[in-house]
Design a protein around this nucleic acid. Structure first.
Lengths: 118, 118
DNA sequence: CAGCATCCGATCTGATACTG
DNA sequence: CAGTATCAGATCGGATGCTG
């Protein structure tokens, strides 16, 4: 995926960046601090390695995250949010809050409590 | 599209609602007040009627918008945000702000000025 | 462990034509 | 004007196997 450069509206640009199925969750995890792919995979239920790496690469392309690679075996790589990524995370964060509010309306307190979100 | 009921995280739920290509723009327009499909089509550059109606139906399914239909010819229908929709719009609104900030970093003031966003 | 390539089914989107 | 149906092409996502 490449970021377009002909967005007719800033909203479209942001949307494009976080539209991928796993993007918000990846950003959510990275907002807690830098993280390796394997750790991300563990913390994001259901994501495949392929999609993880692919989405990480797309986020790299958008300048939302960066990585550092420590050479040698075993390989170690860390991904982390850039300043731009921290801005995007503001949107992700609101998405989470709004989701919690909606679940509360739907009487899903139990679910939220189980997750430690309440 | 049907909303799932097995989200493992509130973030996923919100994301699912606004993931469609035109959803944020539709919500953006509706946030200004109730609006007919034809007016929406005019204000959202590039959207086809099919995608507009389809996305409107999906937003209806999610309880994010509602509509009123005035019977008779010519047909008139108005869509508007529900309370839930107004909450979701908070996220959309931040996406817009973040997009503007990113465009400013990218030296696209001219574009933003043309759009009256600066 | 991190990352890439391939194959394939699922999903999404757009164009067009049609109905009440 | 609002809404539906159909079809084709594009994109996305998941499974698997391979590389350094």
């Amino acid at each position: 995926m490449k970021m377009r450069s002909d967005y007719t509206c800033p909203l479209e640009m942001t949307h494009d960046i976080i539209r991928g199925k796993w993007k918000p969750l990846i950003l959510w995890q990275l907002s807690k601090g830098e993280c390796s792919p394997s750790a991300l995979k563990k913390s994001i239920q259901g994501i495949s390695q392929k999609m993880l790496i692919q989405h990480l690469n797309e986020l790299l392309d958008c300048g939302v995250i960066e990585k550092t690679s420590h050479e040698g075996y075993p390989l170690k790589t860390s991904y982390f949010l850039t300043e731009r990524g921290k801005k995007i995370f503001e949107a992700v964060s609101i998405m989470q809050s709004v989701g919690i509010e909606m679940m509360l309306e739907d009487n899903r307190e139990d679910f939220l409590k189980d997750k430690g979100l309440l």
